[in-house]
């Protein structure tokens, strides 16, 4: 239900969440065929069903509202390109580290080879990996900006994502720019790169520790979904941590928890609202207010070399 619905897999929702903490971007087959069927039944791609309230929505109207459901305020996943367009000043973004591409260090192959899945996903999305980092401006204030793209293996973090975040944070430190990262990762740490993915958690966190020591500002924006190894590292470490409404945010996936405790989980569990109530978010911000809210933080928390 993002901007390229014809050829993208269905967006992972709470119901379809597999393993949380990590995942390889595979959707259960049933979910995939269901969604395809659903789509086929909808006339001319003009209508879509809301993951939040299940109502049938007129697509042009949803797009006009920045891909937010006009009925229930559910925030649909959007591409990194759209995110950049929404938050940064027009034409101010310059992508960096575009020369980095993923490899297959484990020779990871199950039903399908990781190598092949990478190539397919790269073709489908036009991205080399699951995050985009660069410099830009927000209300004329220069920043280093990064965003993960959930269309690419569910926004999971492997070596390239870790390296780009690491370099982005170092760039912010050196330029004395604030660092802003919009996270959306149902995938967490990318299983296909094994232990190397896990280590990206420590690596990105170390970069942020260093930025912090230098007096830099990090604003972390959590979007649907931000799970597992992404949340348990860089995404949780903002000086300011904000989230879009109704996003799924947590460490372990709902299914894993259900299996472990052998009981149902409470309604609204692991949503933005749940996290706010338990004290882990500074604020929930509607998509249409993200840009202005981030800008107000940028004006409030100005770089003070330590």
């Amino acid at each position: 239900m993002n901007d390229t619905p014809q050829d993208s897999l269905p967006s992972p929702t709470a119901k379809r969440q597999l393993d949380p903490a990590l995942d390889s971007g595979l959707e259960p087959l049933e979910a995939r065929t269901d969604a395809v069927k659903k789509r086929r039944d909808m006339p001319a791609n003009l209508w879509m069903q809301c993951d939040g309230c299940s109502k049938l929505l007129y697509k042009p109207r949803v797009e006009e509202k920045l891909n937010v459901c006009p009925e229930c305020n559910y925030h649909f996943e959007i591409s990194s390109a759209k995110r950049i367009q929404m938050i940064l000043d027009p034409a101010s973004f310059e992508e960096r580290f575009t020369n980095l591409s993923p490899l297959d260090p484990l020779g990871f192959r199950a039903l399908k080879a990781y190598k092949d899945r990478l190539v397919e996903t790269q073709h489908r999305t036009g991205l080399k990996d699951a995050c985009v980092v660069g410099t830009g401006k927000i209300e004329r204030i220069p920043v280093v900006f990064g965003v993960s793209d959930s269309r690419f293996l569910r926004g999971s973090m492997g070596s390239v994502v870790g390296e780009k975040i690491f370099r982005g944070v170092e760039l912010a430190r050196d330029l004395k720019y604030p660092f802003i990262f919009v996270s959306g990762s149902g995938g967490g740490a990318r299983m296909d790169e094994g232990i190397l993915s896990l280590m990206q958690m420590a690596k990105t966190s170390a970069a942020l520790a260093d930025l912090d020591r230098h007096g830099g500002l990090f604003i972390s924006v959590l979007t649907n979904p931000t799970m597992g190894g992404a949340l348990a590292s860089f995404a949780a470490l903002g000086d300011v941590v904000i989230a879009e409404p109704k996003a799924l945010i947590g460490f372990a996936g709902p299914n894993v928890i259900r299996e472990t405790i052998k009981a149902d989980i409470p309604a609204g569990f692991q949503t933005s609202e749940f996290l706010l109530e338990h004290g882990f978010l500074d604020r929930i911000v509607n998509r249409e207010d993200l840009r202005s809210t981030i800008a107000s933080f940028l004006r409030m928390f100005v770089f003070r070399p330590a």
Binding site: A232, F234, A252, I257, T260, F269, H278, G279
Partner: peptide, 16 residues
């Protein structure tokens, strides 16, 4: 992976 662990910010504490 449990309800209490999530309520008390498992991911946030590990990240810290």
């Amino acid at each position: 992976p449990g309800v209490g662990a999530e309520e008390r910010g498992q991911a946030f504490i590990i990240a810290k």
